[in-house]
Design a protein around this nucleic acid. Structure first.
Lengths: 176, 176
DNA sequence: GTCTATAGTGGGATAGAC
DNA sequence: GTCTATCCCACTATAGAC
């Protein structure tokens, strides 16, 4: 019963996530959230310390949700398909998370690290594995973000492109 | 001697490219270009049909330059290193070209296609090779854009991550 | 080809009443 | 926790004089 203020912030953050997807990243802002909430813009300042704070809450939630989704993915195929599905389920949030400078001071501590750790752990925790883990992440990210930004021809067989990634990374784990 | 107007447009576009890199994509606009050119913003409308036209000119130039750079690259290693160096030489232009919705009606006809064709041709022109060519492009793009957006730890060995890409793609061409 | 003047839009943000 | 009122800023864009 004590932390009802926090509940309101959480509810507004969830609404903001929906607005972000429906309006698009470029049209998103305090005004868009206020309109959707049926509230005037200045009211939001009781719950967020400005736009950067709101974006930080959304991004933190995104990292936490990604880490949680990857938790249950074992094996390269599950990893790749989970990452792909998770990103495409909320493409505008994915763009917000990855396609602009990241103000880490606005994030919940550990949120980004939790997601990154899950990514790196797909290949073991040894530092020697990191270049391969990072390049695999970049590969998956490239496939996802180019699709979100509509850079592939409409007839491109993206499933086939993902299969190349899966087969390649599977080869790495088999020979480790 | 006839097309001096066009010369001015070209010079302003070149200046805009420099401003884009020094000010960053978010701070770029007609005002930034006007300040750099020592001119008032409305004057630019004699040379560009608004901001979208200016951005289209920059993006077209970027695609043309990329196609030209890839022209001389033969083999996977040369391809990868050329792409990487070209993107990182003008990171803000690369972001402008790849990280937002692309208004193709504002581009010089064929500019995007020329660059994309060079990318696909790295693996031959058969449609069966396209999934592999596209996934390789996405991979290279992911490595470049995550570095530009500062998403890798500062101690990450990116050279090693690129070597994984090169070794993998080399394997594809050897077994074709 | 450049200028001044101006209009319009949209956004973020603060102060203070209720 | 929400409101009104207000301010500030930045940018795009047009009209018309020089």
């Amino acid at each position: 019963m004590t932390a009802r203020i926090s509940d309101r912030r959480r509810a507004l953050t969830a609404l903001a996530g929906a607005v972000l997807e429906s309006e698009g990243l470029d049209a998103f802002g305090l005004g868009a959230l206020a309109r959707a909430a049926g509230v005037k813009t200045p009211s939001l300042y009781k719950h967020f310390d400005g736009l950067a704070d709101l974006e930080g809450a959304l991004i933190s939630e995104g990292f936490t949700a990604l880490a949680s989704a990857l938790e249950g993915a074992s094996g390269i195929r599950a990893f790749a398909e989970t990452y792909r599905a998770h990103a495409l389920a909320r493409p505008q949030l994915y763009r917000l998370m990855t396609s602009r400078p990241l103000d880490r001071s606005r994030l919940e501590p550990g949120a980004e690290l939790a997601a990154m750790t899950k990514l790196l752990d797909a290949f073991g925790e040894s530092p020697a594995d990191h270049p391969r883990a990072r390049t695999l992440w970049a590969w998956a990210h490239g496939l996802v973000i180019l699709q979100i930004d509509d850079r592939f021809p409409s007839d491109a067989d993206l499933d086939a492109s993902w299969e190349v990634l899966i087969a390649t990374a599977d080869g790495w784990t088999r020979t480790h």
